[in-house]
Amino acid sequence: MSPDVFLQHLVNGISLGFIFGLIAIGYTLVYGVVKLVNFAHGDVFMMATFFVFYGFTLFMMPWWLAVIFGIVVTILLGVGIERIAYRPLRDAPRISSLCAAIGMSFLIQNIATVVFGGRQKSFYVPPSLTTTFVIGGVRIQAITIATIVVSVIVLLLLTFLIKRTKMGLAMRALSVDFDTAKLMGINVNRTIAFTFAIGSALAALSAILWALRYPQIWPFMGVFPGWRAFTAAIIGGIGSIVGALFGGFMLGMVTILLVAFFPEAAGYRDAIIFVLLVVILLVKPTGLFGEKKSR
């Protein structure tokens, strides 16, 4: 394999890694604050693509407006799920909220199947994003670069939000010690709703980037990206944003390089990711960047 082709795969892997990383951060933020695996996250991801799709085709919005519309509606959906399904169960045993999350995932998938139909739809990709640049022999699609640029901007914003704002401080406080944070006068409901809003916004953004890359959308499209992103979050150490990003990168690289070097094993890439996950759980259960478990 020539260095050019290798570089090309590397860039592809980085951009896919950013997408996984963004979804994984959504999982990790929510898990950090409410200690809940948000099973519906992959389905929120899926719904975002449909919101953009219908904003564009049904409501005849210009493309940029459809994207904003999609992100806003997805945020409402994410916050709504928290309000309806998770908040009433916050003081219930953990298994109940896990059941609620699984139930919501099941419900959203089926609503999508009934309302949108089970068949694949093709997602509109603006022509400007499909052009291919050739930089020193390396062929890179515009969407690949756009993904990297958008992700970096979003990550900088997110870092600012978490490290420098009051809301971010509240989120960090809740994730360290829920009860004490509550006693210190943090508005728990608002902070959790805000966490879900950010998680959903990240899901929406990554879903749009994903759909621009693989422009087929259907009601079960969130299952695999969602699962891989959660794997990324575990590999990086759940609760850690840097870890989630790192895990996303790792999976992005594994996925792309596997297809590049062993095309015949491409069908098994999720199996390989799965083995990776099991090995990590055996060797370092708290993940690469995770803190020591205190339960």
């Binding site: 099973f39 695999f224 699962w227 794997t231």
Partner: peptide
Amino acid sequence: LRVGGDYLAIVTYGFAEIIRVI
């Protein structure tokens, strides 16, 4: 199961899908 918690749910969820792929 050694780790405990919610990992089992998500890992078995992935396992079922991956078996299907295999």
